[in-house]
Nucleic acid binder design. Sequence first.
RNA 1: GGACCCGUGGUGUAGCGGCCUAACAUGCCAGCCUGUCACGCUGGAGACCGCCGGUUCGAAUCCGGUCGGGUCCGCCA
Length: 645
Amino acid sequence: MGAHAHRPGTIDASHTRTRSLFTVSADRRPLATPYRTHTCGDLRLADDGITAKLSGWVHRRRDYGKLIFIDLRDRHGITQVVIDAGDAPEAHEIATRVRSEFVIAVEGIVTERGEGMDNAKLATGAVEVQVRSIRILNEAKTPPFYINDPDATIDETLRLRYRYLDIRREAMQARLMLRSRLVQAIREVHHDNGFIEIETPNLIKSTPEGARDFIVPSRLQPGTVYALPQSPQQLKQLLMVAGIDRYFQIARCFRDEDLRGDRQPEFTQLDLEMSFVDEDTVRTFIEMMVIQVTKATVPDRPIRQIPFPVFEYDDAIERYGSDKPDLRFAMELFDLAPALRTADGTPDSGFRVFDETLASGGRVKGITAPGMGGATRREIDELTETAKRFGARGLVNLSVQPGGELHGPIAKFLSASTQATVRDQAGASDGDLILIVADKAETTNDVLGRLRVELGGRLGLADPNELAYCWVHHFQMYQRDAEHTRWDATHNPFSGVVPEDEVLLATTAGDLDVRDPGDPAGRAKAMQYDVALNGWELGGGSVRIWDPVLLARSFGLQGYSKEQMHERFGAILEAFEYGAPPHGGIALGVDRWAALLSYQTNIREVMAFPKTQSGSDLMLEAPSAPDAEQYQELGLKFVGLPPKG
RNA sequence: GGACCCGUGGUGUAGCGGCCUAACAUGCCAGCCUGUCACGCUGGAGACCGCCGGUUCGAAUCCGGUCGGGUCCGCCA
């Protein structure tokens, strides 16, 4: 375990690379210093009788007049120390002045607590330290919130303002330690598999990632700027050209976009890239790595399915309405079109909205909420509100009655036989609620996918302990840009096309100014894969286009002129002329991963010093106005933003 | 860029037009207590209700604005 295992003098046969990652060292005193012989989590019954020195923060003090108990805390645990006025009058006098969160050092005899006096809630609860001497290393103001109450709800503004106090709390420490284990496991698995960890610069040139860049003005070259990397994408591909056939990095990335609970302006990616691989090779490694890292980090949490399920992008959308399905519960979408058409295929449900939607090429699909047949008006309204917020015109609800009859506002339009088929398609039975959306395909799937997530939450369908990883791949390569007549890469502009679709690109390599919506390029599938975990996108990657001819063709389709290509991708295009190996990789969101493994949905909870939604650091009070001198050196002047309008 | 929610002693909440010279819990301070472990008991201090303006005889309570925080849409992979 890093520093512990490799510390001189602690070498022992079990300290090999293959031993379990996280066993506690047999040597219990690696953290001993002049201030302590043990940590506050170390002492056990076996230590009865020894002299120990402990240092830490006063977690709690219980004063009996002539007898004072102090729960002494450090990040390793809590140990009760006792100061008895009869045994140690000087120490007792000092202890009366001690308050919460004072930093103190004590020395005394480790003593078995004895019958009925032990505390099973503490790992060290079988013993206590009978204090001979005590030192106040530092006093402390009364903290602005409870550090010693794990259940206290604290306003996040306060937590962020006093983050160094927040991090003293057990829950934060546990999450940061989990994150540290996660990153350690990531490094071990990669090193064990021949990967080289290489750092790439944070002052680079803008890369076309789609998000807004953070800009850093150059002093040495006034009037020019660096961009902070949105990801090391281009640099890692250049490393592949450089012959680093297996690269990884725990990389800090920066994106100047609006924030969310799962998005911070700077965040951490596990970035990796491999040479001489096809999609299968890369995904096989990543899956193995993810499984090993998960097991090393949270050994008690079950992974729902190994190997991970693999979905075609189109299938994921069709079945779950999402490209990052939460597979901890089923509740798949169903298609009502077959139930609503006559034998010759004419839409004839009796309900005009359904028929017109189908006739115009839209979809009528639904989802079944088990046991929600008795939903209140209010619940239905809330679900309808959700549906509308995501673009649906309405939400049809039908509850299944004991006889199998459907009840709901539009039930009267549906014949008995149509009702039976609908019920059948929905797989619904007595007491269930059927929710139906009729709209164009994209809206229908999206709305139902979001309803699925919401219903899963309301009904508590997901096992919170379970980790359901899955793959979604074969995204469509390009999407037609609404305004311009060009194709946007749906993910990474370097993503390769699946070999059988290469021809689709070739057939359109003619006049780039005239783009036909029916262009075969729109059908091309990318060698692009995402990993999802419990309904979150953990990360995505692809096998890249490594053939310069194909790359130029793909960029052309995306509407880049020769000049733009050179301006934005010059280095990589040139590098590819010197022999690029086939390569592919992935980037995984470390913050999201750590959050999910910590049962959190907010990545601020696994970051030591995160920013607020408006990008402020409440502790450091960043951002702040630069000095006049800084402006001057850079030749800059703030002229204000143009008026809104 | 937009929608919604929150802002009351140190902390978490209650109060939502006059009974509020603001309540409860906890924390804090003082005193008592030799076996507690969210110790206990007694006493005490502590907020003018984010800020500005308005409505009203009267505002923590209603309205507008503003600042800060959060959730979400857009944006972002």
